[in-house]
Design a protein around this nucleic acid. Structure first.
Lengths: 239, 239
DNA sequence: TTGATAATGATAGTTTTACTATTACATTTG
DNA sequence: CAAATGTAATAGTAAAACTATCATTATCAA
């Protein structure tokens, strides 16, 4: 059955690094309203315009209560993206399970990482589709800050790194000599998000063809061509 | 001679869309101090911590005077990135001039787009190296906002789009059948910036090899392999 | 050289956001 | 039932993001 995965997964709850929150938002009803409310609100008005005051109004709880869960709006963004990466890791594990061919596992990984998420029965209090939009538009703001290094030491970006590592391993399995598996995968993940954004807002920066998922096709082709074992193309042309 | 380019170019001044500023900062001494001062300050403390008050203090002019040139700090970021793209377009034009081979022109373009900028005699009041750092860390924040569409209509992102278009043309020249030249080039530009950031702050997301510019090498290889005319690798494996 | 015009400086004020503190009330749980 | 814990309500501060006003200085044409 097609929706066996979400049913299974709805039982387990995604873990997020506890340095991100003051109090686990998964542990109370208010916490969950804060999370689902911020997904709605950020998706609606954008992260720069998102404030705790507005969130409080939209979930009908005082601003101060939100501060008991999250220290700042930046931490909420971290929480959401971190949750997203962990969730992707679960989906990836399922997509790759029992698939013997490494190429096929890579193919499935790339579908997962570059396509718009299939609307499955929706997990817990999180609107997956809106969360995906948020990740596309706002996730880079979670690490393009002055505090990256400290936050990175706290393990806040573990989920993302693990996801990249997992796919990089598959690449290494296909071609052990390939030198840049992590670079390739992070390029694909970030790239796919950017291209989706460009398609909507800055179409001159991309190429959208009707009737197909150009983005997924493009990145699949890109990955398989660049990890192929045949001799390099023409890199020796210029110094 | 190696530094003929900057000498020539120091005579001409880069044009930036006039919707970005209230008063052309290139037209006065204060304007130039605002621009060079913001490059220093943003590079130093990051865009989120950058304020007009701090800028005023650092250039020793009142906050209110800065508002006569730029409506908001976001507009300053737009100005800086826009200036950067125009400047890249000039450099690109020179790098490609009189080079008959399209492959060689592409190779040179990729060097320019993915490498750290060579320290040339420095143009006018702008610290090119610091500007490049800013573009890496902050440029995506210039378009990942709620106002993209309006600003895009005002032509604020023309420079970036033109740059992408110019390189895309070279790709079309090499392989007219290639379907995604813009997607490929914007992936490379954004990707190279991200990878440089990752190398410094989130090394697990990339692969850095000592003694070589892995990033440039990686993207050159990626581009040439993916535009190569040979049959597609294994895209037909899965739906 | 003068006198009008525009650019800048100095100062001050408003609104909004980000965040903190305090107290009271409600709910769970042992 | 009491203690602990969670939530609401209210009030406040500090800084940021602007706006306004007027004095001063430089610019330049008559």
């Amino acid at each position: 059955m097609k929706n066996e995965l979400p049913i299974l997964l709805s039982k387990l709850n995604i873990q997020v690094n506890d340095k991100i929150y003051l109090k686990d938002p998964g542990s109370s009803e208010l916490g969950q309203r804060i999370v689902s409310g911020s997904i709605e609100l950020i998706d609606d008005i954008g992260f720069e315009n998102f404030t705790f005051r507005k969130l409080g109004q939209s979930i009908k709880s005082p601003e101060a209560s939100i501060y008991r869960y999250f220290e700042s709006k930046h931490k909420i963004l971290l929480y959401l993206t971190s949750w997203y990466w962990s969730w992707m890791e679960y989906k990836l594990a399922f997509a790759m399970a029992n698939v013997p061919s490494a190429k096929e596992r890579l193919m499935r990984s790339l579908s997962l990482l570059t396509s718009w998420p299939a609307i499955d029965g929706s997990i817990s209090h999180i609107n997956e589709s809106k969360l995906h939009s948020i990740v596309i538009k706002e996730s880079s703001k979670s690490y393009l800050t002055k505090d990256v290094d400290t936050e990175n030491k706290d393990g806040v970006f573990m989920g993302y790194k693990q996801l990249v590592a997992r796919v990089a391993e598959v690449i290494k399995e296909i071609n052990p000599e390939f030198k840049y598996p992590h670079m390739l995968i992070s390029t694909v993940i970030e790239g796919a998000h950017h291209q989706r954004y460009f398609a909507e807002h800055l179409p001159k920066l991309t190429d959208i063809l009707k009737g197909e998922d150009s983005i997924t096709e493009f990145y699949k082709d890109l990955v398989f061509k660049s990890i192929a074992k045949n001799g390099s193309t023409s890199t020796q042309l210029s110094k």
